[in-house]
Design a protein around this nucleic acid. Structure first.
Lengths: 376, 376
DNA sequence: CGTAAACATGATAGCGCAGTCAAACGGGGC
DNA sequence: GCCCCGTTTGACTGCGCTATCATGTTTACG
């Protein structure tokens, strides 16, 4: 049976003095050994390690933090939701934090709570974290926030004042531009955009990238439809767009909305990709398996978080060293079956068309629903 | 501009003594006020609060922890992945932890690392957490683990020795049984099961529930196909099952696998739900928007985590009080379009059938892919 | 009006480590 | 042989708070 004890949990768990006594050294020497400080003879070092092992000694982190002023922990401000993007950031952060020898404390912002970021940050700082990660920030009318520990901002421009602010971004704009250009390259006259909520920096980045691509190709810029990242909002947008006969290509700001959008298009009798092409964003694990498989942009979450945290830790430990410039991650477009060249000629008129005949398609015979489908 | 400072961050941040001096009381009185202890006169209390406010005082948690032996934090052992189930647990836990006035520390198990749970637990206990949440545990040959703080085990039987072990479970078995019975109720002779990895308790629960339902209805028990929760594994299973003409209904242990499964069936020319019905598990937000919309079991993540954490905190703070018995959550089946009665007569023979004509379906005309689809 | 409770405050002593400084030791250069 | 300097070790102190106990100060009630 594995036995795990919390230091200080009971009066019986050993203290560093106990280790010192057993090893026949001073308490300070135990501290030296355990912190890998120089000036300890190899013999003593081993004796201390053996004694610590024998007693099952674990350092009390609260005492360490109090005495040293450092907690060796990093706080992350995240959204308390199951959105794929934020969750993937969190998973990557956990891994990277542990790799760097730190521990992780989490504070979620409460959805829709303005000043939520400030609240979450305050909670983390109260806990004495040595650094903070803000993943995918939203600007809900919060002004500049000033924090007295280094900050890593993921996927957004920094609007924090801190001893050091480091940024690691995917560069969503470039990705959005590539997605849009993929559609233009297939021959679409223009590309509609189903945007994310514009309070999100990453949503604005994607919008900007889409706009850039259109301008660079002198394409018309159709009105933007804004969703809230959810498939439900994509579905709602899809019902709108399905009625517009001029739409032949849509770039959705994330995969969930893209999938909701596609569902609405299919229900309205618009085929994907024959009538309308759709590109998503994120490459969620399901993207390859929905019908039709989704063309999408893959985000390099892991590389970005790992690199960002390495910078953050460097800044925490050696505040004076100059940081290397951030390197952009390569853009990765995953082409699947939701994009194709536009239909031969523009569909005349507006409004719902008659339901067309189904193709005999090479891969599979999808089916609609027989049970009446109601919005959940 | 919002200014946030870390207690102890600089020598200038105020201490409780500073507050005491400003309020003209002893340091101990400040401590009393801030801990809401009785026996402080209202006048003094207010003076102390004002002084604290004026100085922007924040308590140093490390010192509090050291002096009191409690960190007011709860650790959660989680999987470092973006799987919907674990992630939803985590989101629910964060919310509940904050509601209870605690903070959250996270340690992820490293995938495929045996003893990963023990390692993550050790890391949390080293940090001095007052309680631990194990979400969706796996038993990777780890024996009984003994921990010296209370433990909340979500969604699984406890195999931990601790001062107190509380369990909060969805009761996945009952849910799986309901899912299976839904299919049997539609007239299917039996139901195949696409199981989750059997190292997971929740996967075993679901398998057991499925089996129970079959037995109760005296239905044949077909061989189980095991996936790894991913859509890719569902897809692989689907290729297998598509070749078996006797399959008319499948219960998948989660939605991702169900979606991968459906994709493979469609590609093989088996219609869903006309030829084969599929039920998923989780009710991920996308489930309503894939094609066909997925019939699935909704898990009450929030209720279960909230209730579980309330119990955990009670056990931490008042170890002697008797706990109320756990109440089962109601089973919730969300019927969408991926399930239907079986086809009129058993499909003769085995192997691939010719691609049938598409229905003119009431809701939408889904399309397959024209671009050749390759497994990612 | 006296006495026992209840209330209100403060002095003092740790919690378990890391930081500071001083002391002891040892080898090389003169 | 003496001094200097790098090495090795330990005694002592303090991080900022909570806990314990002692000391006043009221109130309750016979």
């Amino acid at each position: 049976m594995t036995r795990l004890a919390r230091p200080g949990g009971s009066p019986l768990t050993p203290r560093s003095v106990d280790v010192a006594r057993l090893a026949g050294v001073s308490q300070k020497t135990v501290s030296r050994v355990l912190n890998d400080e120089p000036y300890v003879s190899p013999g003593l070092r081993q004796r201390v390690l053996d004694a610590a092992e024998e007693l099952g000694y674990r350092r009390n982190q609260a005492a360490r933090a109090l005495a040293s002023g450092r907690t060796r922990s990093i706080g992350v401000v995240t959204l308390g939701s199951a959105l794929y993007g934020p969750v993937s950031w969190l998973a990557g952060i956990e891994r990277a934090v542990r790799e760097m020898g730190y521990t992780l404390r989490v504070a979620a912002t409460i959805e829709g709570d303005p000043g939520g970021i400030a609240g979450a940050l305050a909670s983390l700082l109260d806990q004495g974290v040595d650094g903070v990660v803000i993943s995918e920030p939203i600007d809900e009318g919060v002004g500049l926030i000033s924090v007295d520990v280094p900050v890593l901002v993921l996927g957004a421009p920094p609007n924090f004042a801190a001893p050091q602010v480091v940024t690691a971004r995917v560069g969503a704009g470039r990705f959005a531009r590539a997605a849009t250009e993929h559609l233009l390259g297939l021959g679409h006259e223009t590309v509609h955009h189903l945007a994310g909520p514009q309070r999100w920096y990453s949503a604005r980045d994607r919008l900007a990238g889409w706009r850039e691509a259109l301008r660079a190709h002198s394409a018309d810029e159709p009105p933007v439809v804004e969703g809230d990242w959810s498939a439900a909002s994509g579905y709602a947008a899809g019902r709108e767009l399905a009625g517009d006969g001029t739409v032949t290509a849509v770039f959705a700001a994330n995969d969930d909305m893209a999938i909701g959008l596609i569902r609405a298009l299919l229900e309205a009798g618009r085929r994907v990709p024959e009538d309308i092409s759709v590109v998503g964003f994120d490459d969620i694990p399901l993207a390859a398996y929905v019908t039709p498989p989704l063309t999408t942009m893959r985000q390099p979450f892991d590389e970005v978080t790992r690199r960002g945290l390495a910078l953050l830790v460097q800044v925490i430990e050696k505040p004076d060293v100059e940081l290397p410039p951030a390197a952009d991650q390569p853009v990765e477009l995953v082409v699947r079956a939701s994009t194709a060249p536009p239909p031969p000629r523009p569909i005349p008129g507006r409004g719902r068309r008659a339901i067309p005949q189904a193709y005999g398609v090479p891969y599979g015979q999808p089916a609609g629903s027989e049970v009446p489908y109601t919005q959940p």
